[in-house]
Structure formats: C-alpha cells, structure tokens
Design a protein around this nucleic acid. Structure first.
Length: 743
DNA sequence: GGATAAACTTAGGAAGCCCAAG
DNA sequence: CTTGGGCTTCCTAAGTTTATCC
C-alpha cells in the first residue's frame, strides 16, 4: 500500500538508461562556458524581477496578494548572493557582464487553472515537535541493558591495561601476555543491545594514537633526470617533489587537459627557487619521461619482490594497523577508517573540475587538530613537532581533522563502518526511512495538492518533491561557481536539463532529463509524468533562459524545512533511502522463486539489487576487460556443455550395458549440469551488470535487514550476499533480523 | 534569514590481493 | 611458477544536512 509508488516502471529494464558519464560526452563542455557567463546575469535578473512581475492579478486574489508579496519578498533567495557574485565577478574579470534582458524569475503566485477543483487539502498535523533524535521510535529502542557507570569505568581501565601491554609489544604481534582474548576482540560486542546516548554526546571516553603521516619525500637518485628544453636540470627538492607528482601521472589523460596543466604549472612554480622559476617558464618544454620511467621500474620491482620481502611489508603494515588503526571508545577497541593522512599530490577532481591539477600540499603535525578525551593518553606528535590543537569535544565523532588546501574544507579521521558510532547512525537512518513508509501516502497526497497551489514557491516545491520521490533524485544544493564541476541535483536543475514532450512514443506528458549529477555522472531518463506536473513544468520554464534554474523559488534548505514539518527527521535523502529499500523488498518478493537453486536465487537477488542501482543511477565505467572476460566465460560455458554431453553419453552407454552401478555417472551428469547452470547464470548476471554498480546501494541505501531476512527465508548463506567487510558493517542487522522482517 | 562552516554520508575509481587456470 | 582477472580494500572527492554566525 504505502510502498507501492512504482516509480521505476521501465527503469528496471537496464537498457533504458543511457550510460554516459562525462568521459564520453562532449556536449557538456560547450555548455559549460556559456553557463558560466550566464549564471551571474541570471541571478542579478532574478533579484530584479523577483517580486514584481507576477503577471496575473485576478481580483479574487487581492487580499492574498498582500500576504504573498510580503512573504515572497523576504524570501527571495538571490538578493545577497547576487551582490556577492557581482563583486567577485568584477574582481575576476575586471568588467561587469551585460545584464540579461529577458531572464525572468517565476511570478510569485499562479492563477489556478480551470480544472482545479478547490477543496480543503487534508491538513496534516505538525503538532509533533521535533524531539531530537528518533528517540520516540519504538523500533529503534535497543533493549535497556544494565546501566553501569562505574562498571564502565572499570571496564575502561581494563581495556587500557590490555592496550598498554600491547603497545609495548615490539613485534606487533597481537599476542598479549595473559589471554588471546585480544585476537578475537572479546565475543563481538553487540552495541545494538545497549542504550544509546541521547543528548548529542557521542562518547564518554576516546583514546587514540593520532594519524599516520605520509612518508617524507624521498629525492630521486642522481641518475634520474629532469630535462628542460632538452637539457638536464637538477631541481631543488621542493620543486622536484612536485615534478614527480606530475611524472607519476604522465600517462593519465589528466595531464593532457589544459586546465590540469595550467593549474599544475602555476602551483609548481610556487615551489620553485627563484632561479628555477626564471628558467622554467613553459610546461611544454619540460620532459618528465625519465622520471616517469623510473617510477614504472620501481613499481615493477615492487611487484617482482620475493615472497619474503612482501611478507615483511605486510607484517609492517599490520603492525601499523594494530598501533594506529584502532582507538578506544567507551571501553571498546574500535577500528578507525582512514588513519593515514592523505599524501601530497595533484588534485584529481571528477568531471570538468576547475581545480584539477592543483597541488595538494603535504599535511604536517602543526596542521592537525586532535580530538580525544581529556583523561586519555593523548597522542604524541612526531618528535620535534606540535599539533595545531588538542581538543576534547565529545559532541563530534572525529578523532583527527585538518583543513585541506584545495577547497579549504575540513577533512576528518573517523571510525570504520563496523563501529558502534557509525552503526547506530546507519540503523537510525533506516528507521527514519521506515517511518517515512508509514506516512508516505499522506505526503504524496499533500504534494499532489500543492501542484495546484496559488503560490509559485509551493508548486515548485511540490513538483521538486515529486521528482525526488518518483525518480530518487538527490536534493541538489547550489554550488559555488568556479570551485567545482558544474553538476546539479533536483533543486538546482536548470531549464536546459529537461525537455518536455506532450507526446512521445505513444505516451503522454513525457519529461526527458539529461544532466550531470554527483561525480559528474550523467543522469538520463525519459519518463511520463502526471499532467499537472507537466503543466507546471511548462509554467516554470516560461520566459526563462536555458541556464536559468527550473525551480527558481526553491532550494534545498527551503525544501528540507518543509519536509521537517511533514515528518520528524525527514529530509530529501530519506526518500532515496526509502525508495531504494522498498524497491529491493518488492523486487525480491517478485523475483525470487523458492523452487530455484541457490545460484538462481542469488541471480534474483542481484536483479533486485540492480533495479535499485538503476533507480539511484549508480553507474560505473564498464570494466576495461569486460568484453574479454565475457568471452572467456562463454568459452568456459561451451566447454562445460561439451563436458555435459560427454557425461550424458557415458551414462547412456552404461545404462545400455545394463550396469546397475551407474550412480556415480548420474551424479556426474547432475554435477555438471549444475556447474553449467551456474556459469550461465553468472554470464547473465555479469552482462546485465556491465555499467551498473551494485555496491553503492548495497552499502548505503538498502536496509540490510531486508537482505538478512531474505537469506534466512530462502536458506541462502549470508556470505553469498555480504562479504566479510559488509558483514562487519551490518553485524547489527545480521544479528537482529529474522525471516519475518518487513521494512 | 541567508551565508558559511562543520560534520557526516555517499560515491566511483585505483590499487592491492588472491586464487584459478595455463 | 606465472599470469590474468575478479573481488576487496583503499582512497578521497563530492554530496547532504546541521550548526553557527552575522
């Protein structure tokens, strides 16, 4: 009932989405330039027209108009932005672009169409005050287990003991004196059976050893040379290091891109001595190939290392992992996700990124902020260095942070997905999505009502929400121009990204979407929509330029505020989670045949998973070796077929000879048949998966309890669905879901 | 109330690893 | 033993949402 939006009819057919990311598309390139120049004008224009140009002023609306005008004026989203941008523009270009003549913002309110019946929309209670966290959610109340404060304290001390013992252990082997309890982190802690923190506190105790820094720069041997203008040139260590970054990427297509080269060269020059700067003025005259060869040789050498040497490295890595890869959080030793600081290098943005090639600088101890408990043993900075700061903020989950120099954003070291702190959050996410399931009908009715609203902003909000719901689009924040690739989501979609077809391929009211979304992955979809949506889209597009926002009176913050009123904890992305999970559940129900054998059932699972991946537009570049591996598989299948007919013939002969003892031959036939079937299934699966990435949805959108329940119901070992890492992440679900679980 | 910073989740690609086939 | 290929893990960019500031 509630879950049957069937938003993805026709999408489950894998062929319906063209899979083109930026790599394959040039179309976007042209647009981009145009777009950049336009956007500023556009916003200026919006503020100009913002609240003055509603076209229709039928008498009956006079009273409301006052109200609306007021409201609208105060919420016009472009006023200040416009100023900011203009200034920026001036300083950047040294001139002001000409104003756009005809860029219109949408009028604030809309004449009701004749067919609009007026009736009171079922007003829904907003009475539910937001009570921080989904504490009122019964499903998410872990059993109250012992409340123990001194117990905890005791336990913590014990943990400390264990740990300090361990760190003394030179070998890095996890043997600790008294027991092997450490090897098997004491019977897997079931955090989901314990009470959660409420008040925004994330932990009470946190101790860790700080980050692992990137190894220092190792200068090139003197026989490896850099050439400028054909002549060998010894570079200063600083300049040389940056040069090696480029050399290492030499056969990547990045290094052929203009922006990349320009950014790189600019930043490289900053690292040069004044002498170097004076000489090296043209990247084209730089020859890195000697360096490049050297690195290739190095990596070959690494591959060719003896087993013993490889083993040594592995052990060393394990030692580092044991020392730095774990922390103690509230009595438990938990795995850290990214305990290694990102090494310096050249920034590799995705898609047409304006900053690609810039130098990502080396992070030093004095850049690092440490977060841990006051009463813990604080991590030591490397000898002779200092941390930027040590703080004790237990309202956040990170252990280490630093500011990155490309976008100026903060990077964090946090815990592994298997940790309590991440797991609880993940669980909570799915519970929120399940609460949406309970009220999604109401919300859908609401936005359908809102398509008829007299206020433009409400109509836009309602249509956007419809897309987010039906098509599982992302929210689509505005992005600062020139800082990132030009990509969009629902709220930031522009007129140029959609096409309207009153009729197409025998369907009415078809909308064609074509834009670059997150990671510059192309979203292409052609879907029929409801008539009212279609009419609204026409209205939103009136008098607009291609690069104007489709929803000019909407942004993610407005949308999320609205959603928050509809349901506690509701945000745009909850719809993605909800629709993904409910789709998996439905598809599993529909596709699984209990008569099937295990491989066939798993194929069904993968197909259900695939339906979700298609819905969420999770694409991947077809593996480079795809065609070949497909062929190989086919060869195997053919061989297996031959083998099968041989085995069958032998069986026949044996029957013909009246042998009674042909059981083994029967078995052989059976076994081979099964193997063949398995291969064929594998081939199908792989073919269908060519450009579709299942991992993302599996890891981030599908309530793991659905999969666990399915496994239990059909006797599929969970290992067939989740690998080791995934089982660790979803341990809570594996432990708690039984076969009756319903999302 | 809008801009910006901070925190945290989601994402695809590259590198690493491991195992089966040759 | 070597190779190739597929799966896993690592990496870090790019989103969303929340918090804070003015």
């Amino acid at each position: 009932m509630s879950g049957d939006h069937s938003h993805n009819e026709g999408q489950i057919d894998c062929g319906s989405r063209v899979n083109d990311s930026y790599k394959h598309k040039d179309k976007y390139k042209e647009k981009e330039h145009k777009h950049k120049d336009h956007k500023k004008d556009k916003e200026r224009e919006k503020s100009k027209h913002g609240n003055s140009d509603y076209r229709d002023s039928s008498d009956k609306k006079h009273k409301e108009k006052e109200k609306i005008k007021h409201k609208d004026g105060s919420t016009d989203k472009y006023k200040d932005k416009h100023k900011r941008k203009e200034e920026k523009l001036k300083s950047l270009d040294g001139k002001i672009k000409k104003e756009k003549e005809n860029g219109f913002a949408s009028p604030p309110y809309v004449k009701s169409e004749p067919e609009d019946e007026f009736y009171q929309s079922p007003r829904h209670d907003k009475s539910l005050k937001r009570e921080r966290d989904d504490d009122n959610d019964s499903e998410f109340k872990p059993k109250k287990i012992k409340t123990e404060n001194d117990k905890k304290a005791k336990k913590r001390k014990q943990d400390d003991d264990i740990k300090s013992k361990k760190t003394k252990n030179k070998k890095g082997e996890v043997t600790d004196g008294k027991k092997k309890a450490k090897k098997e982190p004491e019977e897997k802690w079931k955090w989901w059976e314990e009470e959660r923190y409420t008040d925004g506190v994330k932990w009470k105790f946190l101790e860790h050893k700080g980050p692992v820094f990137a190894p220092p720069y190792d200068p090139l041997p003197s026989n490896v040379k850099f050439y400028y203008d054909g002549k060998p040139m010894k570079l200063s260590p600083e300049a040389e290091e940056v040069a090696t970054f480029f050399a290492k990427m030499l056969d990547h297509e990045y290094t052929t891109k203009d922006i990349f080269r320009k950014n790189f060269f600019k930043d490289w020059r900053k690292e040069m001595t004044s002498e170097e700067k004076a000489i090296i003025t043209d990247l084209k005259k730089c020859n890195f190939s000697d360096m490049s060869e050297y690195f290739k040789a190095q990596s070959e050498a690494r591959k060719a290392m003896t087993k013993e040497d490889k083993q040594k490295i592995k052990e060393e890595n394990e030692r580092i992992l044991q020392e730095y890869g774990f922390c103690i959080m509230d009595n438990h030793r938990e795995r850290i996700a990214n305990f290694r600081i990102e090494p310096p290098g050249l920034f590799r943005g995705r898609g047409d990124h304006p900053k690609m090639g810039m130098l990502k600088r080396r992070i030093r101890p004095q850049d690092i902020i440490i977060n841990c408990s006051k009463d813990s043993k604080h991590p030591e900075p490397p000898p002779g260095t200092k941390w930027k700061e040590v703080r004790h903020d237990n309202k956040v989950t990170w252990l280490v942070s630093w500011t990155e120099n490309i976008q100026g954003s903060i990077k964090y070291i946090m815990l592994n997905p298997s940790s309590r702190i991440k797991g609880e959050k993940d669980w909570q996410k799915y519970e929120t999505a399940r609460r949406l399931k309970k009220c999604v009908d109401r919300i859908r009715n609401q936005y359908r009502e809102d398509w008829k609203s007299k206020e433009m902003r409400i109509r836009q909000r309602a249509v956007a929400l419809y897309f987010i719901d039906k098509l599982a689009l992302r929210a689509g924040n505005e992005k600062e121009e020139g800082e990132t690739a030009d990509t969009v989501g629902c709220c930031s979609v522009r007129v140029e990204h959609i096409k309207l077809y009153p009729e197409s391929d025998g369907q009415e009211y078809v909308v064609e979407f074509d834009f670059l979304g997150k990671d510059s992955i192309r979203y292409y979809n052609k879907v029929p929509v409801e008539k009212r949506v279609f009419k609204n889209l026409q209205l939103f597009m009136e008098n607009k330029e291609p690069d104007d926002d489709l929803f000019d009176r909407l942004n993610t913050s407005i949308l999320n505020k609205h959603l928050q009123e509809l349901m506690d904890g509701l945000t745009a992305k909850v719809f993605r989670t909800y629709n993904a999970s409910i789709t998996l559940q439905q598809q599993l129900k529909q596709l699984t045949n209990s008569e099937d054998n295990v491989p066939a059932k798993i194929l069904s699972y993968n197909r259900a998973n695939r339906a979700v991946a298609i819905l969420c537009n999770h694409q991947r570049a077809p593996p480079k070796t795809f065609e070949k591996s497909m062929q190989n598989l086919q060869t195997k299948i053919d061989a297996k077929r031959d083998q099968l007919s041989d085995a069958k013939r032998e069986l026949k002969i044996s029957i013909y000879l009246g042998q009674i003892n042909n059981i083994s031959k029967k078995k052989a036939v059976q076994r081979i048949e099964e193997q063949l079937m398995k291969l064929e299934v594998q081939a199908t699966d792989r073919e269908e998966n060519k450009q579709i990435a299942l991992g993302t949805s599996k890891l981030n959108y599908l309530d793991p309890r659905i999969s666990v329940a399915w496994c239990k119901k059909f006797g599929i070992p969970i290992e067939k669905i989740y690998n080791k890492t995934q089982r660790e992440k979803f341990a809570w679900a594996i432990d708690m879901a039984d076969e009756d679980f319903e999302f």
